[in-house]
Amino acid sequence: MADLILHQYATSPFSEKIRLLMGAKGLDWQAVEIPPILPKPDVVALTGGYRRTPVLQVGADIYCDTALICEVIDRVAPAPAIYPAAQAASARLAAGWIDTALFTAAVTYLFQPAGVQSMLGHLTPAQIQAFSADRKAMRGDTNALRMPLPEAIALLHETFGRLEQQFNAGVAHVAGPELSVADFSLYHNVWFIKRASELASILDAYPALQAWYARMQAHGHGKVRVVTGADALAVAHRTDPAPQPRGVAAGSGFEAGDAVTVTPTDYARDPVAGVLVALDAHTVTLRRQDPRAGAVNVHFPRQGYQVQRAG
């Protein structure tokens, strides 16, 4: 198995989700610190345009979206399982809702005026302007990552209150009695809120939730070694993509070898173009060729991504 290389940055909540998972699995891994905003030339050389953070690289295979990254890491290191058989469906469903609806509420809550200083106070005015422009471009003309502030606060309180009751009733984890991917999704939302000292008091009313958070935080981040983007590109260039046994599902409307694009359906709608290698109900894989990265396979979850014929 090739080394796990996570392209991430320190303040990214979804990166923290994966860093904690690396710790829970007791993994050695490598980190490339990437810019939080465009341009990201090394990342784009690997992904073909996908700009969300983080991205997982395993040799010349590039995995986009933490929903898929979690599954890849679970295959590499099956213990502790994060898709326990009795909770596999509920864990995935809960994680999906937390990563979208709850995260949208958290972003709205944190980027109200009282929280902006905590979140962006380390940046210069010019950097804040660039960050705001980048995130506006990511949203495009959609309402992704935006909701009215009162509704965001209400959603956070309702969610945290229900979890508080569940934890107090003796259920140790988000999706049931066993650790699952849903715990890592909730964790990065709470971690994100805790970064904003002026607004973190919203958690004060939920001591059982905070005790759960402390137990999760104790997993740590595993053993990490920082490498450069050039190092990661060199790994991809000298490595062949792994064989893809799945192929393209019959009835999908596509065939292996079709020129296609894959585009997120919610925000950061930057299409990635390539040759279709595999497509089924769970994942889609494209083959790309890049002068710096060589031949790479770029993998996406099927859910949340649109596959179209190129052109």
Rank of each mutant, 00 (worst) to 15 (best):
S132K: 14
A133W: 11
Q57R: 11
M147R: 11
A152L: 04
D42E: 14
R139P: 01
W191P: 03
P78D: 02
T11A: 10
R238F: 06
W29V: 01
A95M: 10
T66L: 12
A249V: 14
L209K: 07
A77N: 13
H122S: 15
A105I: 10
R146Q: 09
V76D: 05
I5H: 13
K194Q: 15
A91G: 02
L38T: 12
A10F: 03
G274E: 11
T142C: 01
H7K: 09
V277A: 06
A211M: 00
F254S: 09
F111D: 01
A126E: 15
M138K: 14
K40I: 00
V32S: 08
E33T: 09
A137M: 07
L199K: 13
T104L: 00
G253A: 07
T239H: 13
V44F: 15
L120D: 05
R287Q: 11
N143P: 01
Q117V: 04
A211F: 06
R139I: 00
P84I: 02
V235G: 06
D270I: 08
R162W: 09
G311T: 04
D3Q: 14
L110G: 03
H157Y: 13
Q30P: 08
H282L: 00
C70K: 12
A105L: 11
L93P: 03
V235Q: 13
L203W: 14
G220C: 07
P36D: 06
L21I: 10
L21C: 08
G26H: 11
P13C: 03
R135T: 08
A88V: 10
I128C: 05
D141A: 00
A45W: 12
A152T: 13
Y267D: 03
A182Q: 04
E71N: 07
P291Y: 10
I73H: 12
A175T: 06
P148F: 11
F167A: 03
Y305R: 02
F131C: 07
M119A: 07
T228P: 05
L110F: 09
M22C: 13
A24T: 11
H122L: 09
Q210T: 04
V262D: 07
A130W: 12
T47E: 03
V58F: 07
G176P: 07
G176R: 05
A85K: 04
A208Y: 09
W29L: 03
A259F: 14
A2F: 14
S118A: 09
I18S: 10
V260N: 12
L145K: 12
P148L: 01
R139C: 03
D3P: 05
P245A: 02
A242L: 11
T283D: 11
N189Q: 15
Y109D: 03
R215E: 01
T159H: 15
P148N: 06
L123M: 15
E16R: 13
G229Q: 13
P291R: 05
G49Q: 02
E16K: 12
L163A: 05
P125C: 04
T239M: 04
H188Y: 14
A114C: 04
A94I: 06
A137W: 13
A172S: 00
R302A: 00
V72F: 10
A105R: 14
A88I: 05
D3G: 06
S90N: 01
A45F: 10
L123G: 08
P148A: 01
G294A: 06
N143M: 05
I18K: 15
R288S: 01
